[in-house]
Structures are given as structure tokens and as C-alpha cells.
Write a protein that binds this DNA or RNA. Structure first.
Lengths: 246, 246
DNA sequence: GCCGATTTGTGCGTATGTATG
DNA sequence: TCATACATACGCACAAATCGG
């Protein structure tokens, strides 16, 4: 029985033992300077170190696993996670489908943020790709155009294209944020509307224009391509939610 | 839709039982059209409905609680949560302090995104506030300026100012995103640098300029005020991470 | 304020699945 | 094949918080 009442104010921070355990595990990661992929103590060891039962440790680990701060592998152990923005995706995606009246509203904002980031980071991206030729990105563009002509979707290539654009330019966090929004938008959109083959082809080609503009060092052309890229999608969203101001 | 129960052997779908249970609970929320604050079945009832033990149900609930999809209250029950972006804050904040070599790098990107959103949504915000006078925001500005003169911080007012700007303009999701980034940035910054009293006052005044520009319908002035608002912060970050490319 | 019912929080023992050697 | 170590799951008992009579 670990009543463990701390005299004075602190008690045990705020929450439950499990929440406290989660904080302690985070402190443990920080204190030992552990990085992604490093092995953490076993659950039993954590029980001893934190002075709580297995149940609490497991719930704490579950919390951190949800936040992608730790990565639990069955039968092997618990490792430091990649700390991706996956929790953001899940929350936003779920939220976007639980707003009956505002079906397109939440999704529209997600897309608006994507446009905002693509336009705002245009200088940085163009500056990075100017005068180079990025074979992987050209490959992805070719893949998307080819798929579009066959009337097939090209989700994987699309996602990688956008994330590569940012991560190559040294914006790792923004890249992951873009990926998260991409995930949300593609997870929610199919439940609301389906794009036309024509739009699919326009979108595919816009990726090529973005890449060429970046390699040519033309920021304005890059921004035009970004707007062209989102035009079909915004048209669908606006048509379904005409109450949008300006 | 989902795989559902596999006869015979207990294995079903892919992930763990707890993950499966979490998916089922989300489906339950969607299927019943539950909204924030609505009461969910008790853990015991969920055990029966999902056919798993209480341990698994609890881990599933813990997962959803971490994502702010459900809200658990001791002795009362489990409710549908507010689905805030709190999980994003925790992940990003933790990530920002676990990059020894990149101390300011992650934080810099967070601030870059904030600037991006403030600039990109300028038209929308200015269009909404033009010709009006928002007393609450003026109150917050006065509070910030007064605090700055006394050399005191004004975190609460600062945060509310920025979130109000977006939520008033009808961008609820972006507002919460801004709030999340604000939380990350203010959670991490104190561990890296402390602002000067002069910078504090400049920042406080910039808020007033933003508000006045918005109410005057001057988008360009608004953008200038936004840049002035972030200038002190960016100066600190750039000074500490000189490896930034153009 | 007390009591009991309900519900979540915690602890613990046990059995099973899974990787390693 | 067997043994070991560990994560996963189950079930129960009790503690703590909340609510209503």
C-alpha cells in the first residue's frame, strides 16, 4: 500500500498514480538522454523504481505509447518512440467526423492550414532546391501522373512528395505536421466527397509544376503551382459549404 | 466495416485487444452520435459489449483519454472528451526538449509555423474585425501592456489574445492549433532563454498594433505588426542557432 | 453527517503468446 | 526441443471518489 502522501502542497502532482508514473518515465528518458530506439527498463523494473504496481505502470506506458513517446514491442521490450505527430492525426481525424453540422468545416480548415504552410515555406523550399535535380521527387511525380492517367489514386506518392519537400529543406517538424494534416485530410475526405478524374489529373500535374518551379528557383511559379494543386480540392469544399466568407 | 469477432481463436484483426477495444469505443461514439460531455457506458458494460476483460477496456480508455477523446472522472464515469489538441502539445513539447544538438531547432520551427499561420490568415482576420471594436481583446492588450511595464509576464492574456483572434474569425481548429503551438513554445522556451524586459514590452505593444490594424481593416499594417510581434523572439532564436540557411 | 450503491483507480496472481538462445 | 525472459491478457479484491437517500 503506497499511500505516500507528500506533506505540504505537492501531494502527487495532480492526477492518478498512472499519470504520475508517466511523468516519471518521461523524466527518466530525459535524465538518461535516451534517443529514439533506445531500450527502456522492463515493466517489472519500472514497478520497483516508481514504487507502483504493474497495472499503473502499464497504463502509464499505454499513455506514452499513444503519444508515440515510447514504442512497445510484444515479447521484446519497451523502446523510446519516434515522437511522431500520429496522436494529432487520430484526434483531428476523429474530430473531423464527429461534427454533424460542420462536415466540411473542420476539413476545410485542415486544408487551409496545408495551403498556408505550402505558401509560407515557399521561399525556403525553392531556395533549397534551386539549381538541383531531385531524382526521387521526379520519380514520385512521374508515378502520380501515370496513376492519374490510369484513373488510379496515388496516395502514397502524394504524401511522400509533400513531406519530402519540407524534410529535405530542413524543416523536419513542419514536414511531419504536413504529413499529419495530409493523413487527416485523406482519412476524412472519402467520407464526404469523391474527386473527379479530371481533378485527379490536375492535382497530379500540379506536383510536377511545383517541383520544376522549385528547381528553377522561381518562387512565384511555385506559389502558383501550389494554388493550382489545391484548387480542385477547395472547389469541392466550397461547393459543399457555401457559407464561407471571403 | 471492421473485421469484428473471429470465431474460435481469440485473435482478431491485427493490433492488441486494447487497441481493438479503443476502435470499438470510437465506433460506439460515432454510431450513437455522442457529443462532448455525453456519458459513456461503464467499464463493466464495455467489458460485456466488447467481450474483453476490464484490464483491456481500461487500457483502451486510457488510450482514448490520452487523445482527449474521452474524459474519465473518478467515481462518476467516462464521458466523451473535448478532443482538444493537447496530445499534440505533449508530444511536441517533449520532443523539443529531447534534441540535445538541436535545442533551438525544433522550437524555431514551432515559431515559424505560428508566424506562417498569423500571416496567412491575416486577410480573414482583418476582414472579420474591420469596422468593429472588440472590447475583450482591447482589455487583454491593456493587461499585457500594463504587465510588461511592471516587468511581469503576461502568459495567460497572450495566449487568449492569439486564440481569440482565430476563433472569433471562425477558424476554430486553427485557433486550437495556434494555442497548441503557443503552449509548446512557452513550455520549452524558458528552458533555453529568457527574454529581456525591452523585448517583453515590444511584444506587448505589437499585440495592440495587430488589433488596431485589424479593426482599421489594414491588412498590410496587420502583417507588419505580426512580424514586429515575433521579431524579438526570432532574434533570440537566430542568435542561438546561427547555422540557419537563408 | 452517515450510509450504501455505483464507478473508477490500484494491486496482485496466473495463464498465455512471443522472441531469444 | 527446451528453457528463459518478457509482454499481453484475464479475473478478482479492495481502495477511493462520487452521488443519492
Amino acid at each position: 500500500m503506497t499511500s505516500e502522501v507528500v506533506p505540504g502542497i505537492g501531494i502527487r502532482g495532480n492526477g492518478s498514480l498512472a499519470s504520475e508514473a508517466a511523468r516519471e518515465i518521461k523524466r527518466l528518458i530525459l535524465a538518461n538522454g535516451l534517443r529514439s530506439g533506445d531500450l527502456l527498463p522492463t515493466e517489472s523494473e519500472l514497478c520497483e523504481k516508481l514504487g507502483v504496481s504493474r497495472s499503473s505502470v502499464r497504463e502509464a506506458i499505454r499513455t506514452l505509447q499513444t503519444l508515440d513517446i515510447v514504442d512497445v514491442k510484444h515479447g521484446r521490450g519497451t523502446f523510446v518512440g519516434k515522437m511522431s505527430l500520429q496522436p494529432l492525426v487520430e484526434t483531428l481525424a476523429f474530430r473531423s467526423v464527429t461534427s454533424p453540422g460542420d462536415d466540411f468545416r473542420a476539413l476545410r480548415e485542415v486544408v487551409d492550414v496545408r495551403v498556408s504552410l505550402d505558401l509560407s515555406f515557399a521561399e525556403r523550399i525553392v531556395a533549397h532546391f534551386e539549381g538541383t535535380r531531385h531524382e526521387l521527387l521526379h520519380l514520385l511525380v512521374g508515378e502520380m501522373v501515370a496513376s492519374a492517367r490510369r484513373g488510379e489514386p496515388f496516395a502514397a506518392a502524394d504524401r511522400e512528395f509533400h513531406t519530402q519537400l519540407f524534410s529535405e529543406s530542413g524543416c523536419e517538424m513542419v514536414s511531419q505536421l504536413v504529413a499529419a494534416f495530409w493523413d487527416v485530410h485523406t482519412a476524412v475526405l472519402p467520407q464526404l466527397a469523391i474527386p473527379t478524374p479530371c481533378d485527379i489529373e490536375l492535382t497530379a500535374k500540379a506536383h510536377g509544376d511545383m517541383l520544376e518551379a522549385a528547381e528553377a528557383g522561381d518562387v512565384e511559379a511555385y506559389r502558383r503551382a501550389v494554388n493550382a494543386h489545391y484548387a480542385p480540392l477547395l472547389r469541392v469544399l466550397d461547393a459543399s459549404a457555401p457559407d464561407r466568407s471571403a
